[in-house]
Amino acid sequence: MTTALVLFSGGQDSATCLAWALERFERVETVGFDYGQRHRVELEVRLRFLDALRARFPGWGRKLGEDHLIDMGVLGRISETSLTQDVAFRMNESGLPNTFVPGRNLLFFTFAAAVAYRRDLKVLVGGMCETDFSGYPDCRDDTLKALQVALNLGMDSRFAVETPLMWIDKAATWQMARDLGGAALVDLMIEHTHTCYRGDREHRHPWGYGCGECPACELRARGWAQYQTQLQAQLGSSGAFQPAAA
């Protein structure tokens, strides 16, 4: 298990997972998906992040291999969600938010496994999280464990599905990025990742770009505030604390 394929959307979570994989594996490739998402600016941002990562972290850059982009537009066409249509964010009668795209992560991992099979990559890495999320059933640990079994049976292979963020919140995700790449990686994530559901790249906040109002922005901003408080507690007594530029 020395090779990995990271499901890399261009968002904070998947970018953290990419750094996590580069720290552990000898060869790492990335895969993104174009499914007709409203925030398709992430498809542009992800390439800028990869270029910046190679430039600022040459050790990781030497491990970082090919990037793959898969056209999954059919998923957007058959989905009626606020991520694939211009509708307001709300809760559905099912109790799930209308940002939930049914089958998305199941399909993403299945297509990623097909790429990994061809590229001889053994570990599939995703940024799914059950601690700090919107209740999406395809982000649950049980779902991903079951999917790993199905992929291995269906492809007669031995893939491992890794979800480094499964049991941590957004504040801990910021901390993980700092532990992996220091303040330089945190700054890179602020400038070159995208998490806003509306695709807003005009408004710059201390935690990055976004509308500041959608569920993804609210979650990211809250995690940033908690992370800053924890970081100040860790470093404040030594006078080493320097908050990131707003």
Rank of each mutant, 00 (worst) to 15 (best):
L7D: 00
L188Y: 06
E42P: 08
C196K: 02
L124M: 05
R104D: 02
W60I: 08
H192T: 12
L219N: 02
S14G: 04
R56Y: 10
G10L: 05
R56F: 09
G61I: 14
L22F: 04
A183S: 14
P102K: 00
K122Y: 06
Y136T: 04
V125M: 02
T84P: 01
S9V: 09
L144T: 00
Q242H: 12
R54M: 11
T30R: 04
L43G: 04
N98K: 11
S14P: 03
D156Q: 12
L96Q: 02
R46E: 05
Y35M: 06
L231W: 06
L53D: 04
F49K: 07
L151M: 06
V101P: 00
P206R: 05
L83G: 05
E26V: 14
L83C: 10
A4N: 01
K145N: 06
K145Y: 08
G36Y: 05
V6C: 01
M128P: 00
A246V: 13
G182A: 14
D187I: 07
P102D: 00
A233T: 10
V101G: 00
V149N: 02
E29D: 13
L50E: 02
L106E: 01
D142P: 05
R77Q: 12
L22P: 01
A4V: 04
M166E: 07
Q232F: 06
V31L: 13
L121P: 12
A15H: 02
T143Q: 07
G126W: 06
E66Y: 10
R77S: 11
L75D: 03
H39F: 11
Q228N: 13
G10F: 04
D71R: 12
L96A: 01
C17V: 08
L64E: 05
D141M: 14
A160N: 05
R140G: 07
D142V: 15
G76R: 07
V186L: 13
F25T: 08
T2S: 10
D86E: 10
F108L: 07
T81Q: 09
F49L: 15
L7A: 05
G223C: 05
D141Q: 15
W20S: 11
V28T: 03
M91R: 10
E66R: 15
P58D: 08
R140L: 11
T30G: 06
D187E: 15
A19H: 08
G236K: 08
R178F: 09
D187P: 05
L153K: 04
P137H: 04
M166Y: 10
F133Y: 15
A183V: 14
Y197Q: 05
V45I: 14
C139R: 10
P137E: 06
D179L: 15
C17F: 06
D179K: 14
G65T: 08
F133H: 14
R48I: 08
I190E: 02
M155Y: 09
S9A: 07
G65V: 10
A55T: 11
R40S: 14
L180V: 04
F8P: 00
H203G: 05
W207T: 03
L43V: 09
R198A: 09
G95Y: 14
H194Y: 11
Y227E: 04
L75N: 01
G199H: 03
R118C: 13
E202M: 15
A184M: 13
G95D: 13
M155Q: 05
G10P: 04
A4K: 00
D71L: 07
A150Y: 03
V74G: 07
N105M: 12
E202N: 13
A172I: 02
N98M: 13
N92S: 10
P243E: 12
G154L: 13
D142F: 14
P97I: 07
R220V: 08
